[in-house]
Design a protein around this nucleic acid. Structure first.
Length: 909
RNA sequence: GGGAGCAUAGCUCAGCUGGUUCAGAGCAUCUGCCUUACAAGCAGAGGGUCACAGGUUCGAACCCUGUUGUUCCCACCA
């Protein structure tokens, strides 16, 4: 035994088996006669690195895949990466900047060349990291959302949806990311509450006639508490009236083209037909009336900036207000603002407050909390901005996606997310699918010199379309210009479950027919709308079938204080470091021990420690068995019954574990497996059959016992394999000689056979008395090495098959039936059975009385409540018969127990 | 502002149709043990008014109502 190390060392083992599995093609899947079991990976960003969220997510997928493989299914886990438009482009832009190259100064082609180089260099690192975790993906199937075939699919889907009238182009208020310089979909905007200041600004109020003058002339304004004076075209005007507004974005004042009040607001009744004068730009803007306004908020008057606020935009349309776009695409002030041109909006915010204070326009500043939108990818503050974008209409196309979740055709686990899903699907807005980026699929729309467009895959095709559609057609093909924008990344990943099987390129091919729909999708609830809902939508649109049957939503990995793990907080451990420290198996177990579906995982390294310790426990169980020698001795009764018991116990627990899997209770399945191995196999079974030591050597065990034990070990290795693939594979090979190519990873999952229930309950009593005796040893300070005697009161119901086991585990010199309680013995009760444990020293009679008295009291109280139930007519008439019978049995048991305790107490006197 | 979820031992969570063993598990804690598989271990023990208040029921951790706390999602109140 000395050659087997005391602790499990995973270093060489993990790489050895991973490459062996790959070499043997165990991860590979091709369609065959077997039932398929398919998972498509949520493709991580191609340039990303593995974080704890990936660990959790992919471990779960690997557990599911490995178990399916053992269940004899054709398991196929398709890996791949996502081109992640904004994130990757931002990284490439930053990389170029470091090289001194500005994106603006190079062509699209040059930029893409750099981007692809970057992708080749860093892309796929994350997939290599997944291998360290043990992920058994079919790597030959690795796909990338921007590879040719997948891009073609995206383009043809765009063309198709456009043809069907689901895609349109239009000027809309979009969420503008000034850092990424692109529009974002609503889903990519994260609203956060921030502390801001609410600035109160007064605008001079003038008549229409003065307003008219102001439009054509320059003017000078003086403002103080009592009123305003203005000089226009050499003439002086003055007045006392102002209209005051409140804003958190004072820099947008320069784009104001109206002031809006509620029609019922008495304060502003007389303002009809008047104009407010916007400070600095001295622009007169109309006072308009709309019941959109909240009279109670601020001053009850709202400045209207149609170019930079969605509500204002709508008000502007309704009341015919001018649109003045005061921002450049990078968030600096545009020439139309008239002031602070080229300065960033946040710098301007500070400046304009000062300037307006100086001019007397600002009269109050309040602290205020409001919600501000941030870019999901760049974390820049989103500016609502009008621009021309492409949209996908969601109203009709999204219907099957909702219906098939509500009718259970697609299951969401845990179910609580169905509500969220439903709410989103019922209130879904059109999807802005264009992005002002280069990294991605370029929109297949072609413009003629007049700005008219057609949608087509290539420019020759577009040219033909132009000829067909426009009579005044008079330009050459090379004058056609393709749309500059690319498509939202999600517009390619929503096709993932179809496109990875070439369902667009080659419809009806063998793969798509066999693997689609896939079985399980494992992902984070954060992308339920981004991705999951849209995949369902695309599935029904293009395959007339769901993309997957079950959606398992994991939680977010947080640190112990409940904070989200993030780079900036530095609270996220490097998964690969953890693997080095605790082994891949240890980390896998650690992650899954405490992560029920949909619940956040409060991660702590000690969880991995527990996983590592478990691996070590299994390792040492192996060491023990490996050290045994067998001979031809007759198998003892104790061995025989121990083996029978564990077989029953194993099956009982296997049934429970299978059920947990069926219900996707991953942590429970793991915990049940953990306890089966640690408690039942190691702490009980191995102790029950462990040979004695004679002259410093382990005595031989009988052949049958050793064989049975090795078989059990194989079974538990199977059960733990999905969770701990490496150590289980290693031990499976160390345990026995295996044929070439034979591996645990492809060994069938244990088959359940119904356990002997009587045996199990017999053991429960045996183990209970063993524990009670151990407890007494501890209390009375009796060494485990000092043998004791035990008697059990004669009872035909007592299952004596475990007597030898009890003797062994309790270190008894004698264990017999008796009619009478021996002298100087403690009484122990297990269920209805009475045990007597004679002790050498004098027994503390008072303490015994006390102990038994408490037990008596408890049982009397219990009996009373049972009797009360049975005496209650309404219980008798309402309760189900089996429950009634149960109560009667409880009564009888309790009465018997009370009687026996009373006798014991009496015998003490 | 709207909606949803959650609240059970120090921590993370089970508790599946209300009905023995319904108050549980793992970890942590405490007490003994370096017992020749494992101190990354063994054996044992102590922890809870099931958030609070009502209600339904023969019977409630579980069903209903309200309160409080908490988390998440959605939303165009400056």
């Amino acid at each position: 035994m000395s050659e087997i190390p005391k602790t499990y060392d995973p270093t060489l083992i993990e790489d050895k088996w991973y490459s062996y599995w790959i070499k043997s093609g165990f991860f590979k899947s091709v369609p065959d006669q077997r039932e398929p079991y398919t998972i498509v990976i949520p493709p991580p960003n191609v340039t990303g690195v593995l974080h704890m969220g990936h660990m959790l997510n992919n471990t779960i997928q690997d557990v599911l895949i490995r178990r399916a493989r053992m269940l004899g299914k054709n398991a196929c886990w398709v890996p791949g990466t996502d081109h992640a438009s904004i994130a990757t482009e931002a990284k490439v832009v930053a990389m170029l900047k470091e090289k001194g190259i500005n994106k603006k100064d190079i062509s699209r082609q040059e930029f893409l060349k750099y981007a692809w180089e970057w992708k080749e260099k860093y892309g796929g690192i994350i997939l290599e990291q997944l291998k360290k975790l043990g992920a058994s993906c079919d790597w030959d199937r690795t796909r990338f959302t921007m590879e040719d075939d997948l891009s073609d699919a995206v383009i043809s889907v765009f063309i198709d949806l456009h043809k069907k009238g689901h895609i349109y182009r239009g000027v809309r208020m979009v969420n503008w990311d000034p850092l990424g310089k692109t529009a974002l979909s609503d889903e990519e905007v994260i609203h956060k509450e921030v502390n801001s200041r609410l600035i109160y600004v007064r605008y001079p109020l003038v008549d229409a006639s003065v307003a008219e003058l102001l439009k054509a002339n320059k003017s000078q304004w003086q403002i103080n508490e009592s009123g305003w004076t203005a000089e226009v075209d050499g003439k002086k005007y003055s007045g006392k009236d102002f209209i005051s507004i409140a804003t958190v974005r004072p820099e947008t004042i320069l784009g104001d083209t109206g002031v809006c009040v509620h029609p019922d607001d008495q304060r502003y009744k007389s303002f009809k037909g008047k104009f407010a004068v916007i400070p600095m730009v001295n622009r007169p803007v109309p006072i308009v009336f709309d019941d959109y306004i909240e009279m109670e908020f601020g001053t009850g008057a709202l400045k209207v900036t149609p170019a930079h606020d969605i509500n204002d935009y709508n008000l502007g349309i309704k009341h015919g207000l001018e649109v003045i776009d005061t921002l450049n695409d990078d968030g600096t002030m545009s020439p139309s603002a008239g002031f602070y041109i080229g300065e960033d909006r946040f710098v301007v915010r500070k400046k304009i407050i000062k300037d307006l204070e100086a001019s007397g326009n600002v009269f109050k500043i309040e602290d205020y909390k409001n919600k501000v939108g941030y870019s999901e990818r760049t974390d820049a503050v989103i500016e609502p901005r009008l621009s021309m974008q492409w949209f996908l209409k969601m109203d009709t196309i999204s219907k099957p996606a909702l219906d098939n979740v509500l009718n259970g055709n697609i299951k969401i686990i845990p179910e609580k997310f169905i509500n969220t899903y439903k709410h989103w699907m019922e209130n879904v807005h059109d999807w802005c699918i264009s992005r002002q980026l280069w990294w991605g699929q370029q929109i297949p729309a072609w413009y003629d010199p007049k700005g008219r467009f057609v949608v087509a895959k290539t420019s020759p095709e577009a040219f033909v379309l132009f000829k067909m559609q426009f009579s005044d057609f008079n330009f050459s093909e090379n004058q056609l210009k393709q749309d500059e924008d690319v498509l939202d990344t999600w517009f390619s990943s929503w096709l993932w479950p179809i496109s990875v099987f070439d369902g667009f390129k080659d419809p009806g091919n063998k793969d798509i027919k066999y693997y689609y729909p896939t079985n399980d999708l494992v992902t984070a609830p954060e992308i339920l709308f981004f991705w999951v809902a849209r995949m369902v939508l695309a599935g029904y649109e293009y395959m007339q079938e769901k993309p997957f049957t079950n959606v398992y939503l994991t939680g977010i990995v947080r640190d112990k204080q409940g904070r989200k793990m993030s780079k900036s907080l530095g609270n996220s451990p490097d998964p690969l470091d953890l693997i080095t420290k605790y082994s891949a198996d240890g980390v896998r177990v650690g992650m899954l021990l405490a992560s029920p579906a949909g619940n956040d995982l409060l991660f702590d390294e000690s969880l991995c420690e527990q996983g590592r310790n478990f691996a070590n426990k299994i390792w040492n169980a192996f060491r023990l068995i490996k050290g045994w020698t067998a001979n031809d001795q007759k198998q003892s009764n104790s061995d025989k019954i121990s083996i029978e018991w564990f077989r029953a116990r194993f099956n009982e627990q296997l049934d429970i574990i299978n059920d947990h899997y069926l219900k996707y209770r991953m942590s429970d399945a793991l915990m049940a497996s953990y306890k089966l191995i640690w408690d039942d196999f190691c702490s009980w079974y191995l102790e029950m059959i462990k040979p004695e030591f004679i002259d410093g050597n382990a005595a031989p065990v009988c052949k049958e016992t050793l064989e049975a034990t090795i078989n059990f070990f194989e079974e538990i290795l199977k059960v733990i394999h999905p969770w701990m693939p490496f150590i289980s594979e290693e031990l499976w090979h160390l345990l026995k000689e295996r044929k070439a190519g034979e591996c645990l990873i492809v060994t069938p999952w244990p088959v359940y056979s119904s356990p002997d229930k009587k045996l199990l309950s017999g053991f429960e009593i045996a183990s209970e008395i063993v524990q009670q005796i151990r407890n007494i040893r501890q209390q009375k300070n009796i060494s485990p090495r000092d043998p004791l005697q035990l008697f059990v009161k004669k009872d035909s119901a007592f299952d004596s098959r475990f007597n030898d086991t009890i003797v062994r585990l309790s270190n008894l010199s004698r264990f017999e039936n008796t009619e009478e309680k021996p002298a100087n013995a403690l009484s122990l009760l297990v269920k209805q059975f009475e045990f007597y444990l004679p002790l050498t020293g004098a027994i503390d009679i008072e303490a015994e009385k006390d102990r038994l008295g408490k037990e008596l009291e408890y049982n009397k109280g219990f009996l009373k409540s049972v009797q009360a139930k049975l005496a209650n007519e309404r219980f008798v008439s309402n309760a189900k018969p089996e429950i009634f019978e149960n109560e009667k049995k409880k009564q009888a048991d309790a009465e018997a127990k009370i009687k026996s305790i009373e006798q014991q107490i009496a015998s003490l006197n």
